[in-house]
Write a protein that binds this DNA or RNA. Sequence first.
RNA 1: GGAGGCGUCGCAUAGUGGCCUAGUGCGCCCGCCUGCUAAGCGGGUUGAGGGUUGAACCCUCUCGCGGGUUCAAAUCCCGCCGCCUCCGCCA
Length: 446
Amino acid sequence: MIDPRILRDDPDRVRAAQAKRGLSDAVVDTALAADAARRAAIGEFEAKRAQQKQLGKQIPQAQGEEKQALLAQTKTLAAEVKAAEAAQGEAEEAWRAALLSIPNLADEQTPAGGEDDFVVLETVGTPRDFAAEGFEPRDHVELGRLLGAIDLDRGAKVSGSRFYFLTGVGAELELALVNLAMEQAREVGFTQVIAPSMVKPRAMDGTGFLGQAADDVYRIEGQDMYLVGTSEVPMAAYHSDEILDGASLPLRYAAFSPCFRKEAGSHGKDTKGIIRVHWFDKVEMFVFTTPEEAVAEHQRLLEWEKMFLDKLELAYQVIDVAAGDLGLSAIRKFDCEAWIPTQGKYRELTSTSNCTEFQTRRLDTRARYAAGAAAGEGSGGSGGSTGSGTEVGPVATLNGTLCAMTRTIVAILETHQQADGSVRVPKALQKWMGREVLEPLEPARG
RNA sequence: GGAGGCGUCGCAUAGUGGCCUAGUGCGCCCGCCUGCUAAGCGGGUUGAGGGUUGAACCCUCUCGCGGGUUCAAAUCCCGCCGCCUCCGCCA
């Protein structure tokens, strides 16, 4: 949810942000009208309620006829209060609904436009030139079969399309990646978390996934619960309804969880292999910090993502995602796209978003800060006790992929394959894999 | 799944229809006193929203959540949620 104050004070800013995403600004006027109606309704209810309380106080002291008169008077008033309260409730609800329909205001630096209007910020490493090396690269499906690492046939048999079993070195590879990711996370100061992958509607809605992304979300039949598409969801809700200690920020979590996605509307895309699947495991970085620090923290998350990809010795580019392709909650998003040799293009491996206060406002997470942190306080003069100590203020959230297992496995297998079908293990993973090369089970298997 | 109990301010507790503008203790903050520390003394200490663009001030809501009864609800009634204990089942 965006800041209601910005809507009221600077609606043109909201209109501009809507335009940048390619959305209508009609919601702005709807929301402004709802805000006015809401405030009028609040005024009416409160006036009636105050009157009721005033009269109510007189009743215990009153006697006889006077008391009867008061009772009659206050009885009709009670009905009016009830009606005014209901009207206020409806006005609040309409206002809230209007506000909730507005996505976070895209950052000034975010490129305008849709999916194809991203800006390439940086290219790291050089894609391998297999032609120069003199052999045709195998895709990850074939490599996975040769190594006994990925079993797609049985995935389909047991669970359907877009499912897989990781077996042997495939399973080892995932566990090694989890370990490497968690090791890095710990070293840079994250708290490791194993997060639930089923959540209540509050968490799903609070992170903005029941908006335009609702089609991609699995709902549990007969229960008011959802399977998460990322541990961003449980982690954003982790501190819901809490007031954090401002001095404890930033709170950095690295959460492991399975991720479930319907992939509705992607029929025909990436049908082969494990690029696009209904379930995968992921280590996600999630940070609670101050609004002032959010932009700098976003850069740090990007650096940690790059650090991880560097350890895997992958070639990749970093893109600045355009406004129309941002999620509901984000003001800016950077994707790291690794080079996939057999596709001849860069594919998204990681993604980091700055959601500012959008999610915490929905989920009611705030922090207690030292007073006057943002206000001017150098007024001098009287040395009286002005500093009231602390004040409650907003908290920003950011998320970033550390390692999404399946796509990372694809990139590693394809990038580090050798002519004989074996795959070189990146140095950083060797410690966890216990070997330097993954060998095919049999030269001619399959 | 069955039975019972409990949810009050950061924590602990009091409160069984109007005297609750929720008391007390602890913790915390400010001040006084004080070689230092401790003790002692005085004051403060939930959050949200509205009146206002900010401050002061005023008002409304907030005793797990949502309904209801009543002129009036922390208090009575109903539903839900969470926690605890016991039984059953189970990785």
